[in-house]
Structure formats: structure tokens, C-alpha cells
Design a protein around this nucleic acid. Structure first.
Length: 456
RNA sequence: GUGGUUGUAGCUCAGCUGGUUAGAGCGCUGGUUUGUGGUACCAGAAGUCGCCGGUUCGAACCCGGUCUUCCACCCCA
């Protein structure tokens, strides 16, 4: 045996069975997106580097896959830069393209570039792979699919209400009960930082707070101290560690804390609007929860922040996320266009459905009947029948080689094909077929009409 | 990017403190059965023990490097 081939770290091959399951999830998501009025777009798998670089923070830049220039690109690098061996400075000289890191930034680019063709508010969905040069681990790959639905050009909070409904609709359709849609608002986080006098440390503060359910209250405080957030601020923030009760009660508690912050109070109002109206409309299977410690996508979210966690008992990071960004297109020179969107992590949803055994018995796209190959003349006789069966919508095929019958039968068995047909000299002479039920082993000699009926 | 972990037949794995020709189950091929698969029995093929280097009389086993797997951190879907 020669050297084994392999695929890059963090990538996967998908077998027929896996593709069928992935399509099942994708179809569910797609059909919900469509009923909510979103239209599909697609963008290239790679973009110009400057479209992506700097949009996801320092960490993000590191995780973007860069594509080497074509041609003899090193010749064009000047000697000083070359001898400096500084990868960071060298990269822009030898790489001008990069693989898509998410779907939101390319979408923003798309909106700016096509602004004259777009009717706003523009509702688009996009289901495509994205790439991250991350270290793989459970539910984390270097190539994975995101399924995004975003609305640009509307500041209405009804969009947030609708997106929560959309999350609920998709997970209900997938029969995945008990997911929690966690929600927060960037303005509340800003408000808290403002009230405790740590505005300059907003990011450090929220990143630490975000880890509450992972490292606990003491862990969070410890990290805050390490980030030089004052003891006084940490004391003021104490109520956040003691949030309990209904969404309404939690919002009241936050409002009390944020009374002096205009921004913070605006966040509370927004959240309140969404919570009240979602409650009025009702959710099928998902839970909506306020989580003031939620702090995702800080680099561009400005209002609502969403994160969906799998049902309790399933160890998986978030299976969806999203939020509002008031000025995402601003980075591409188009001001004052507000957007809000959500994303579904297809690969993680797959793992969750697999773990909970929630994939339905696939209405098998499998072959239903295999004709045994007895030779040339018999094959033609078989294919004439197969052609008519196919025309009637029956998945039928002929074993391609005149192999031993045991082998052909074994093939049908392995592929879980329900029926086999034997047609040799006797059958041809009588214009009949011997139809065998692979499960029961019963077989009958029938004419074509009966064959068709029995296979339908 | 940091720390740990994993790699032996197509697959799942065993292989003792380093000792001669590296094993099992499943799968595969052939046969018992040239118009009958799923069961049974018989026989067989298949591994430079992830890769490169080192220590040793001797390495699947010890050491270093590298790739890969999984896990934690960072971050995220």
C-alpha cells in the first residue's frame, strides 16, 4: 500500500448518509428563511484581504486564512522587509486574497457594492461555508457552514422580534426542543461600564463577565482584577451576579442599576420591547432568556445580541448567534444603514441532533430495485423494463457486470435495496420477471404491469 | 497562538518492565453452493506499528522533532 492520502486538519469528508442529514437541516432552515421573506444570495469563497482584515479584531486577523499571491511574488518583496522576517508586515505583500471568515462582512460589502440595485429594507439569507485557521476541537472546525439571515435598512425593533420567532420556527421544525435563545443588548453593557466608571475597559469588562457560567463569580472577579478594573467597580457590579427571576424582574433590576445612564436605559427599553412582544406572540418550543452577561461580537454589534444554546445536557457551545449592528456598512463607506441578523451553525446543530437522536428515518432516496445481470441479451431486456420503471418514478438499476449471483445479491443486501429482479432465458421467453423481496426472501414471477404495481 | 492527548491490517482495538516470525474481532477475497444475499463452516490476502532522526547488541514500546486526532485555554458557530 502506498502512502495514505489525507485531508487538512479541521476539514471533513461527508458520506452519502451524512450529506442527506446535512441537507435535511439545511432544507429546514431554508424553508423557514423563505417563509419569513428572506431571499438567497451567494458571495465568493474568497475576498480581497482588505475587505476582511481588521474587521474581527486582532484575534480574527490571526484566524483568517490568507491566500498566497500567484506568480513569483517573493521577488517583489524588498530586501529589508524580507530580512526582517516579520510575518505580520510581510503578509500584505505576498497575500492579497483571503478565505471568507464569516458571512456578515461579505454581506456588508455586497450591500455597499450593490446599493443601487437593492430595495431596502433588504432581507437576505446566505448558506455557505466559512473558514477559520483555528485549532479544531469538539464542534469546532476549520471549514464549516453558516446559515445567516439578515435585514439591512430598518431600525425597527420588530425585526428583532421576528428574528427570535425565526429561531423558534427553525428549531421547532427540526424537532429540537428546549433550546434557549439568550438575549442581551450592547447598550446595557455600555451602560454598566459607564455607571461603574470603567468605560475605557468595556471590552475587558464584558469579556470577563461573559465567562460567568463557565468560571463562576469568583473567576470573573479575579479576571476583572487582572484587567485592572477597580475594586469599587467590581462591588457596584455585584447585582449582576445575583440576577434571578423572570425576564421582567431581571430587567427591572438592571434598570435600577442603570438609572443614571441614558444609553443603558435605552438598552433596557429595547430589550423590554422585544421581550414583551415575543411573549405576546408566543414561542413554540424555544425559551427566551435575558442574559446580561452575554457579550458576543463586540467588534460590531451595537444593539441586541443573540446567542442560542443547545438544550440542557448537551455539551456544545452556541449553535447560533446574532445581533444588531447600526453601522456595519460604514466600514465600506455607506453610512447610517442599520442591520440586524442571526446565524445558525449547521455543523454544530448536526452534532446536537446526532447526540439526541433527532434525525428522522430518512425517506430513503435509495435504490428500490436491483436487476440481476445475466449477460448481454438479458441486460437489454432488464434495461427496457428499468427505463419504464424510472419513468414511473421508481429508483431502479441494473448490476453493471455479469458477476456471480451471490455477489450481486450481496450487493443489493449491503446497499439495503428492498427488491431484486431476476430475468434470464425463461423470463424473457415468457415476458415476465422474477421479483424477489430481499427482506422476506419471497419471490413471484410477474408480468411488467404487476411488477410496476408491486414496486410502487 | 499556549498546554495536554492520540496514532498498530480497510474499520475498532490488544500487544507485559525494550527481546527473535506483531495479534484479535469485524470487513474483504475464494470455497462448501455456476439462478439466489442476509446465517454457518473451511481457506486466504492484507501492517517499513503516522513520518523523520536519536539512544541501544536489539525499538511498536525509551528520547527529540514533525504531522494528525481529541481536550482545555484564547476565541468562536
Amino acid at each position: 500500500m502506498s502512502k495514505k492520502p489525507s485531508i487538512p486538519k479541521g476539514t471533513r469528508d461527508f458520506s452519502p448518509a451524512e450529506v442527506v442529514k446535512r441537507q435535511y437541516i439545511m432544507d429546514a432552515i431554508k424553508s423557514c428563511f423563505t417563509t419569513y421573506g428572506f431571499a438567497p444570495i451567494e458571495t465568493p469563497s474568497f475576498e480581497n484581504s482588505d475587505t476582511l482584515m481588521g474587521k474581527y479584531g486582532e484575534e480574527g486577523d490571526r484566524l483568517i486564512f490568507k491566500i498566497l499571491n500567484s506568480g513569483d511574488f517573493l521577488r517583489k518583496v524588498d530586501d529589508a522587509l524580507y530580512t526582517a522576517k516579520d510575518s505580520g508586515k510581510m503578509t500584505p505583500k505576498i497575500s492579497e486574497k483571503a478565505l471568507r471568515y464569516d458571512l456578515t462582512v461579505p454581506f456588508a460589502r455586497y450591500v455597499v457594492q450593490h446599493q443601487n440595485e437593492i430595495t431596502f429594507p433588504f432581507k437576505r439569507y446566505q448558506i455557505q461555508p466559512v473558514w477559520r485557521a483555528d485549532r479544531p476541537q469538539k464542534g469546532r472546525f476549520r471549514e464549516f457552514f453558516q446559515c445567516d439571515a439578515d435585514v439591512v435598512g430598518s431600525k425597527s425593533l420588530w425585526q428583532e422580534v421576528e428574528l427570535v420567532q425565526l429561531y423558534d420556527a427553525v428549531f421547532t421544525k427540526l424537532n429540537l426542543n428546549g433550546v434557549t435563545i439568550k438575549m442581551n443588548n450592547r447598550k446595557i453593557l455600555s451602560g454598566i461600564a459607564e455607571v461603574i466608571g470603567a468605560e475605557d475597559k468595556l471590552i475587558d469588562f464584558t469579556v470577563a463577565l461573559d465567562k460567568l457560567d463557565k468560571i463562576g463569580e469568583e473567576g470573573v472577579k479575579k479576571e476583572m482584577r487582572e484587567k485592572e478594573i477597580s475594586e469599587e467597580a467590581i462591588t457596584k457590579v455585584q447585582p449582576l451576579f445575583e440576577m434571578t427571576g423572570t425576564a421582567k424582574e431581571q430587567l427591572d433590576a438592571i434598570a435600577a442599576l442603570l438609572a443614571s445612564s441614558q444609553t443603558g436605559m435605552q438598552g433596557v427599553e429595547e430589550l423590554n420591547f422585544i421581550v414583551e412582544n415575543v411573549a405576546a406572540l408566543g414561542l413554540e418550543t424555544a425559551q427566551l432568556a435575558i442574559d446580561v452577561t452575554l457579550a458576543r461580537g463586540l467588534n460590531y454589534y451595537t444593539g441586541a445580541i443573540f446567542e442560542v444554546s443547545a438544550p440542557e445536557g448537551v455539551s456544545m457551545g452556541s449553535i447560533g448567534g446574532g445581533g444588531r449592528y447600526d453601522d456595519l456598512t460604514g466600514i465600506f463607506g455607506m453610512k447610517d444603514v442599520s442591520g440586524v441578523g442571526i446565524s445558525f451553525g449547521l455543523d454544530r446543530i448536526y452534532l446536537v441532533l446526532e447526540e439526541l437522536n433527532l434525525f428522522p428515518e430518512t425517506a430513503s432516496a435509495n435504490t428500490k430495485v436491483l436487476f440481476i445481470n445475466f449477460g448481454e441479451k438479458e441486460s437489454l431486456y432488464a434495461l427496457k423494463a428499468i427505463k419504464r420503471l424510472r419513468a414511473a418514478g421508481i429508483n431502479a438499476e441494473l448490476y453493471p457486470d455479469k458477476a456471480k449471483m451471490g455477489k450481486q445479491m450481496g450487493y443489493a443486501d449491503k446497499r439495503d435495496i428492498k427488491f431484486s429482479v431476476l430475468a434470464g432465458d425463461n423470463e424473457i421467453a415468457a415476458e415476465t420477471f422474477t421479483l424477489k423481496n430481499m427482506k422476506s426472501g419471497e419471490q413471484d414471477v410477474v408480468d411488467f404491469k404487476t411488477l410496476l404495481i408491486k414496486l410502487q
